[in-house]
Design a protein around this nucleic acid. Structure first.
Lengths: 139, 139
DNA sequence: CTCGATGCAAAGGCTTTGCAGAAAC
DNA sequence: GTTTCTGCAAAGCCTTTGCATCGAG
């Protein structure tokens, strides 16, 4: 797929510009459209699938019911703010330590992992300490 | 919902009998049927939703595209087989250890986490060692 | 011409909802 | 009668796929 791959190229460019972000197909589709790189949804889907199989993208699941994709940089996990949805990367060192024990106990061979921490980001913590009354709790 | 709730009762009973397992709606639907407690899929769905909102069940996301539910007992994480979909529980001790470090580094307050380990279960490992040639790799 | 990339339309898979009937109180 | 639980059918939401076309080599 080296020739044009206009859409795939635009997707990667979008992702590089915005930095750390887990994109849904919808977001990609919309961003391409507003960026003048209009594309059919299925083409976005296929481009993303291609990029994923090539290892350029990684599928991440933050469990809002949609698949998300991000550039395949250093593997990291995610921390998501229950209040504002902010996402921060977390080094996966958090998990790696205990894997040997798990393999021994379960007999599984662990090939991958996905960790999503949730809680409150620094900004929302600050807001809450100023307005200790009613805050909207999402989760 | 204290009265009959035949289906909800059967669901809880099923779950208690089988012990740790993250059930899909489909599995519940099928198990109820084969157990003589036939129920419409939507009824299973609504019963589960009710039990979840009551706090009896917890929704877990293993990202195989289906919602799963389990009794709200001790919190644990999950390990899922890439080959056959088998799920095994994992003590969340694996994660807890590193949380302090994460909080310090990110400024987030961590309230919860979700960890899904993936790999190959003992059964599939055995099958693969017997037939080392063509096996379907999903991830 | 050949092959990958696209667009368009339709199908799939799983989840959720609308509505009416049945059961418990 | 009122409220809760069920079944049946249909809609929804997102993801995938089939097929014909277009464009580069």
């Amino acid at each position: 797929m080296g020739r044009r791959a206009r859409i795939a190229g635009a997707i990667v460019e979008l992702m590089e510009q915005r930095g750390l972000h887990a994109w849904t197909l919808d977001e990609l589709h919309a961003s391409l459209a507003s960026g003048g790189e209009g594309a059919d949804f299925s083409s976005v889907f296929r481009s993303v699938a291609r990029l994923e199989s090539l290892g350029s993208l990684r599928r991440v699941a933050l469990d809002d019911g949609k698949s998300r994709f991000e550039l395949d940089g250093e593997h990291h996990d995610h921390m998501i703010c229950d209040r504002c949805g902010a996402v921060a990367p977390v080094p996966c060192r958090v998990v790696d330590a205990g894997l040997g024990e798990v393999e021994a106990a379960t007999g599984f061979r662990v090939l991958d992992h996905r960790l999503v921490l949730s809680g409150v980001c620094p900004e929302c913590l600050a807001v809450e300490s100023e307005h200790p009354e009613g805050r909207a709790v999402r989760a």
